[in-house]
Design a protein around this nucleic acid. Structure first.
Lengths: 356, 356
DNA sequence: CTGAAAGCGCTTACAG
DNA sequence: CTGAAAGCGCTTACAG
């Protein structure tokens, strides 16, 4: 028996008594496509309004087996791509009658302020713990933004029959569907463009080593450089972190000669690199060095950065993620899908457009 | 009876049978502070692990009357203050055993791309609808970030016994608790500082007219100017929107003489203003005009903007919001609290620090 | 400490 | 169309 509660809940039985009908009739009134006469429904609605009654969704979920809750696990909210994606994900899901239970995967930094690898066993354990909590809420599906999942847990979700979609990260080993941009193709575009525009000493600043986005973007870039008979002049690591990218930029800026172009694995790091180049080193972008990023977040289009970058088509990625997830929810477990959506290279002012 | 479901749920009864104990014993094993012998608990845990059993939180909530879900309604995620606040809110709540069900209040723009006033009746209706949905999930509490609430709905939450906290917005008419920064004091600090540093022609670019943050910041600013015997040289409106602020900046830049300082109601608009001033008008900040913002979001500290701004202490605001909310949840309805937390003026490079 | 039983607020066959 | 009844997966007095 419940312990004393401060508030009295108004239940369908209260409404039924007031309307002079059965409790079933109340339930039917609030269940679409149920058979109730207009007259009964009207009486019920009237009584419900008088009592400010609202059906208890949790109780309903217990019976229907559907909570209409989607668990979304995100991190890296300081990378503007994610708040934007989250907003779109949430809006799209809402328009389909689902709601988002949000979980933050705090990215851990060590005492030096350095981001740790995300496949670190502590982090993996933390993520598994969080996904466990998500599962406890009887979510109908899970979206993992920029997070990997241990195969143990993936199997557990599978077993529980809860569809999981990886957003902006893919995993080759396990059988989980994913939606990303075509990072390899994006990397190619950058490499080709740099070659076309006559750059000779291309550099690269990498993101988190364990991220598929990082690996694919770099692989595409290197492939295009090779095709153009260019060799990578320098490589640094920024771990998708502003401060780490700034440190890499300082090392790069001390090179003599300077690279004539640098491709940075995402826009968030690119802002750090441009800030260091311009305001610490007094260099001009793109006159002294061309800069290209990846994501095309809102800030990249602002005049302060005016960044040439590969666009990740967030709208399409979100639409695809939601439609895939809802399909898996409706049809039960289906095939593993790995969707990579192509995004254009957006030409702005941070990259020289002609032979020097 | 439930219709056929794809997945078979494993229930406490399944575990009980496997462990050879009663269903109650299983429940007790997963309920902290319940009386189970170590031996029984061990048997149960063993069986539970073998079956990958996890208690159904929804069913538990139905009995305990507590869902441990907090509904959070946010908008303006393009203003970086909000993703940051959301992350902190979610993390803090998670650490207290609560989880966040998120709702996005899409801000509406008209065909000209102009933000509409948020007290517009359509928007108000939309927000009431969303809060209704939040209530349906039997949330234990609601946090409204940068959103107002109709008094009807406020009353309804009150009646349902669901505590509501306004985050970064306050409402004088209704009886809802709120946590904000001390926007009036912040406005004063800006006005005083501008006076101290010898500025003579201060301008102001306002945020959304209906927002309490806008009103309080402007009121504080005007109070300080008056005390310093300064009059406002020019006033524009940016509605807390990047594009609208850019339009205001263009008008301001055409003034002759130019204002020698401009206080802008938040950092998000300030980026637009600085971009227009520097890259469209070829003006220097702060040599031609001093600029001060409000919020101190992460980007403001980046060298590209290096913004002098009033810090909204997000950590303290979040901590206060959560502690207030949890207190109201635990103790039932309590007094209306309006907390305004003081934040410092952060001196950086966008405002001239000496007499011209 | 333990089990049998009542009950949380709903949905949904079932029979009329 | 409508009501009585069973049951979703749990928690919690109650009695031993």
């Amino acid at each position: 028996m419940p312990r004393d509660r401060v508030r009295e809940r108004i239940t369908s039985l209260d409404v039924a008594r007031r309307a002079g009908v059965s409790q079933s009739a109340v339930s039917r009134t609030f269940t679409p496509d149920s058979s109730v006469s207009a007259k009964t429904a009207e009486k019920v609605r009237q009584a419900a309004a008088e009592l400010s009654y609202r059906p208890n969704i949790l109780a309903r979920s217990l019976i229907t087996g559907k909570s209409h809750i989607i668990g979304v696990l995100v991190s890296y909210l300081d990378n503007f791509f994610y708040p934007d994606a989250l907003e779109k994900l949430s809006n799209t899901l809402q328009s389909h009658g689902y709601h988002v239970l949000i979980f933050m995967a705090a990215q851990s930094k060590n005492s030096a302020g350095e981001v740790r690898q995300s496949d670190n066993s502590d982090d993996a354990a933390a993520i598994d713990k969080i996904v466990g909590e998500i599962l406890d809420y009887q979510v109908d599906g899970i979206i993992l933004a920029s997070i990997s999942l241990s195969s143990t847990l993936a199997a557990q979700c599978q077993a529980a029959g809860v569809p999981v979609i990886l957003f902006n990260r893919s995993q080759s080993g396990d059988y989980i569907s994913s939606v990303t941009s075509d990072n390899f193709a994006g990397g190619i575009k950058v490499g080709e463009y740099l070659a076309q525009t006559g750059h000779k000493r291309p550099a690269y600043i990498a993101g988190l080593a364990t991220a598929s986005t990082q690996r694919d973007r770099e692989a595409g870039f290197m492939t295009a450089l090779a095709a153009a008979k260019l060799t990578l002049y320098w490589r640094g690591e920024g771990h998708y972190d502003y401060d780490a990218a700034a440190r890499a930029a300082r090392i790069m800026a001390a090179l003599d000669p300077l690279p004539d172009a640098v491709f940075i694995a995402n826009d968030h790091m690119t802002f750090a690199v441009m800030d260091v180049l311009r305001y610490e080193c007094g260099l001009s972008v793109p006159d002294d060095i061309s800069v290209i990023g990846y994501d095309d977040v809102l800030v990249s289009s602002w005049p302060a950065y005016n960044l040439t970058t590969v666009r990740q088509p967030a709208d399409e990625m979100v639409a695809e993620t939601v439609s895939l997830l809802l399909k898996q929810i409706d049809e039960g477990q289906s095939d593993v899908v790995r969707k990579a959506i192509d995004g254009p290279l957006i030409l702005r002012g941070s990259c020289r457009t002609q032979q020097a």
